[in-house]
Write a protein that binds this DNA or RNA. Sequence first.
DNA 1: CCACTCTATTGACACTTTTTCAATAACGCC
DNA 2: GGCGTTATTGAAAAAGTGTCAATAGAGTGG
Lengths: 204, 204
Amino acid sequence: MTPPTPPTAPRTRLTPDQRRSQLLDLGVRLLATRSLDELSIDLLAEEAGISRGLLYHYFGNKHAFHEAVVRRAADDLIAQTTPPTEGEPMVRLLTSITAYVDYVIANHEGYVSLVKAAAGGNESLRAIYEEARDALNSRAFREDANGQILQDTPTTRLVVRGWSAMTEELVLSWIDDPSGVTREQLIEIVTASLPAIVGVIPGE
Amino acid sequence: MTPPTPPTAPRTRLTPDQRRSQLLDLGVRLLATRSLDELSIDLLAEEAGISRGLLYHYFGNKHAFHEAVVRRAADDLIAQTTPPTEGEPMVRLLTSITAYVDYVIANHEGYVSLVKAAAGGNESLRAIYEEARDALNSRAFREDANGQILQDTPTTRLVVRGWSAMTEELVLSWIDDPSGVTREQLIEIVTASLPAIVGVIPGE
DNA sequence: CCACTCTATTGACACTTTTTCAATAACGCC
DNA sequence: GGCGTTATTGAAAAAGTGTCAATAGAGTGG
């Protein structure tokens, strides 16, 4: 029941960089509509119009390919939510959170796949995700001419990790079912809860 | 390069309940150190010292086996953290959180398995996890003779979901690296942050 | 203590997906 | 227009999943 392959598809030859990019982009795109382990080499090769062998040539094995796709998605997230480097700290934080929320809204499917892939995956996948999240988190600590929002202590770091897990859960749950909460309220809740939680750290 | 299998391993015959238990326990243990799709039937059968066929006999297919493993971990969590039904609401919450934290400390492996599988898995796996988490969360809402802690509105539910994701992240991160925070402080942070976050919900 | 029966357990086989690799054929260069 | 480099392919091996008739523990009755 092989679909009648056009006699012999004319093979197109790209530069390694072009090909790699094409495959990663396609991977990210496909990931939005299925889970990581449903993203088979077979499927990808067919969608890309290439042989399976080529994928192995570029990425070595399925797992490495998945890793590259997740890294691509994570980089995309970071790139599209870069915060301003100037302004009042709280304003910068608000801007950063707004960018994050809007990114998740716009790339809902893809973001869910990223999170799922990372959470359910092995060490290396989780590491990529951790790295991305640290990049987001550290924005709350970043120091600049206007001073920084939070002290950088181990406990604060821990609490910020927690806050960021909460943020992720809130945004994703909200998208599933806003139940009366507006985007603005959501952003307000997320933003205001950071100082609220940090304020709860026991003095030493 | 097959390791020299002892001529023919003497087959041991257990009761179905014993065997099922053995396999589920092993499954939970193995899942703690690898991802769901690295938990192959092959690996499990080898670790258990049985044939692959036996796994299929008991669980039907790989997916059903995964589901059974996750359900096992979830049931264990619920059973071991039943909260008190009496007392001041805040005291009950504290007791409940303490039980949760101690459970995660004591059953780190099993809990990690549960979280990983749920986050990375499909609908049915996530449902099992959600069910367990709802059972924990609803304790914060449970009404009794002493009144309840929180109003039960959609927004509050949303925020509690977030809080609970934060709690999970905090406890797991803390176990990985306590960096100076004591168990008591951790519990205090987690407990105090629930009212702190709820207090941040915008009035309407 | 020895069949005998019941059923837990196995092993070999069919099928799907991943991985390997020698052979092939685009494209740039002379 | 021929030539060399190397991107790309296709076929076949390997690994994983699922099926099922055949095998052999372990308790039971004689």
